[in-house]
């Protein structure tokens, strides 16, 4: 069944994605960034539930499932 609570975190580098997975622990899967979010072929983290903002060092944005698409709920302040 589809996880309606799923969130996707995009990053500025693949290393940042690896560090996030290490900090997040179980329940985090790294996959290619969904095409609907970006034309880049970078790596995104897929998690369920809330994401602690303290873990988002190196992250670009956080999206949550919104129907068939994604809705941005956090963006790095540049």
């Amino acid at each position: 069944m589809e996880d309606r609570d799923q969130k996707v975190i995009t990053f500025h580098s693949q290393y940042a994605a690896f560090l996030f997975r290490r900090r997040y622990g179980d329940g985090c899967v790294l996959r290619p960034v969904p095409r609907a979010l970006s034309s880049s072929c970078g790596t995104a983290a897929f998690v369920s539930g809330n994401v602690d903002a303290k873990l988002l060092d190196g992250a670009e944005a956080v999206y949550e499932k919104d129907g068939e698409g994604w809705r941005m709920i956090w963006k790095e302040q540049s």
């Binding site: 693949q14 790294l30 996959r31 290619p32 095409r35 034309s39 880049s40 072929c41 790596t43």
Partner: peptide
């Protein structure tokens, strides 16, 4: 549209065990 990349597919297998690309 598809983000086809000849290197990205092999890279993703090495790095994240993903077989999409």
């Amino acid at each position: 549209r598809s983000r086809l990349c000849m290197a990205g597919g092999i890279r993703d297998i090495f790095l994240i065990r993903d077989f999409t690309l």
